[in-house]
């Protein structure tokens, strides 16, 4: 059973079997507007927590995406190359960015659960 965590930078990570699937949150996609391109990391890249690991381009601007955990990129969402709009349509599902192995499970302790994240977002508005 996957468990989902959220960062203050509006990434989500769903963890199952030592691998995390990472994307940006529904709140983040509404703030960005129409996504026209996503620059993803390379499979095999070694990432430290907090690294800028992807870039999401809306019509207006480019925004960096930070990795919520350290580890190695094991898969990227190839569908985003042809269909970047998936990020708008289903940010916390089909619009995922990459999968990463978890080098240190304790890094998840710094992240929020959904309830805390929802409260965090509410505090921003």
């Amino acid at each position: 059973m996957a468990k989902i965590y959220f960062s203050e930078e509006h990434e989500w990570i769903s963890v199952e079997g030592g691998v995390g699937t990472v994307g940006i949150t529904e709140y983040a996609q509404t703030q960005l507007g129409d996504v026209v391109f996503v620059e993803l990391p390379e499979v095999g890249a070694s990432i430290d927590k907090g690294d800028d690991v992807a870039v999401v381009e809306s019509v207006k601007a480019a925004s960096e995406v930070y990795s919520p955990v350290s580890g190695e990129i094991v898969e990227i969402n190839e569908e985003l190359a042809d269909a970047p709009g998936l990020v708008n349509q289903n940010a916390e599902g089909d619009g995922w960015f990459f999968k990463i192995t978890l080098a240190d499970d304790s890094e998840l302790d710094d992240l929020m659960n959904r309830e805390d994240y929802d409260a965090f977002v509410e505090g921003l508005e």
Binding site: G33, D34, V36, S58, V59, K60
Partner: peptide
């Protein structure tokens, strides 16, 4: 106003 429904739509 920078956008209402979305830039692609308004474009």
């Amino acid at each position: 106003p920078v956008q209402y429904q979305g830039i692609l739509h308004e474009h």
